[in-house]
Design a protein around this nucleic acid. Structure first.
Lengths: 173, 173
DNA sequence: TTGATTGCAAAGCATTTGCATGCTA
DNA sequence: TAGCATGCAAATGCTTTGCAATCAA
């Protein structure tokens, strides 16, 4: 059974191999940024990751984070996602099955989902237009369960309503 | 039967009503920008629209185009779309049924499509997570028919291959 | 006349690039 | 030692804002 540690080592090897294959160099900054990225499960912006990285080494600049995230993406370990707030988020990509997103416009929570049936219909649709798809993106915006509950609470008890959940990642304006 | 002119008049009235309801004013610039936008069927960027508007009145600034497009969007006549090239495109929204997009990454052609079945499955998916969706966006990137043909031509007759179609709107880098 | 509108210039943001310095291999 | 990597500052590209002059109602 693959442990968290196994997966990390596998992804680390892929990253190093990617760097080597391009004739580039392993550096402390790249190692730190990769490690930090791989040890999260959130949807992170560059700014988020930069902040996390700086906790371990305040001298790392944002430029390097940008450049390293590009390498991680090329290596197939990261994937760019956009949720409509003009920020680029990054999520894990290696061995993560393809999925789509529901985004709560109230609290920013991101729900990942996958539907074989939708995928199939998309393929069919593409065929209909003789379109050869390479990738796609399906996003739904709306209100998540908890925010619906919160809304209801506000209506019945305006003063004491408290958020019930800690959201995975908020969309910041 | 509704003519093109009828539709224009209807949309014009909606725009004017929207402006009035906010206590704002009708101006020559707003009229011109609205007219120009309504008389296209393309996916336009602000820059595109600004260029078109300036053909009739070179003194109109881009700021006014931004502000007027915002009003048109609020009024329900325009809708923002993004195709992944970091530009905001605008398309007609009033009385245009909801649709999704296939984007050719070769020539930039945009194909609009609609699938009742996909919409239904999305609703079902949302229900499963108790998510209350307000809107969504489905985009597929890939190669369109004509670019597939062009590819084939290049392989068999490298020198004389010519684009066969005029694309609706190219994605500019 | 009042206050919204306009266009310019400048500011904001996220992201990228130029470059001198530092560091890996 | 060669030349890639880094971080800063500056540049970029799109969009928004401040402001004085202009114009609709």
């Amino acid at each position: 059974m693959a442990t968290r540690r196994d997966r990390f080592e596998t992804e680390r090897k892929i990253f190093i191999e990617h760097i080597r294959s391009l004739g580039l160099r392993q550096t402390g900054q790249r190692e730190l940024i990769m490690k930090t990225f791989l040890s999260t499960e959130e949807h992170l912006t560059i700014e988020d990751l930069h902040r996390l990285v700086q906790k371990h080494d305040p001298t790392v600049g944002h430029t390097t984070v940008y450049r390293t995230l590009k390498l991680l993406t090329e290596a197939g370990l990261a994937r760019e996602v956009r949720f409509g707030d003009n920020k680029t988020y990054f999520e894990h990509h290696y061995n993560h099955e393809h999925h789509d997103h529901m985004i709560c416009t109230q609290c920013g929570r991101v729900i990942e989902f996958y539907s074989e049936a939708i995928e199939n219909l998309q393929e069919k649709m593409a065929e209909k237009f003789n379109f050869r798809p390479t990738h796609h993106s399906l996003r739904m915006w709306g209100i998540c369960v908890d925010c619906q509950a919160r809304e209801a609470e506000v209506h019945t008890a305006p003063s004491g309503a408290q958020p019930r959940v800690r959201v995975r990642s908020a969309i910041r304006k």
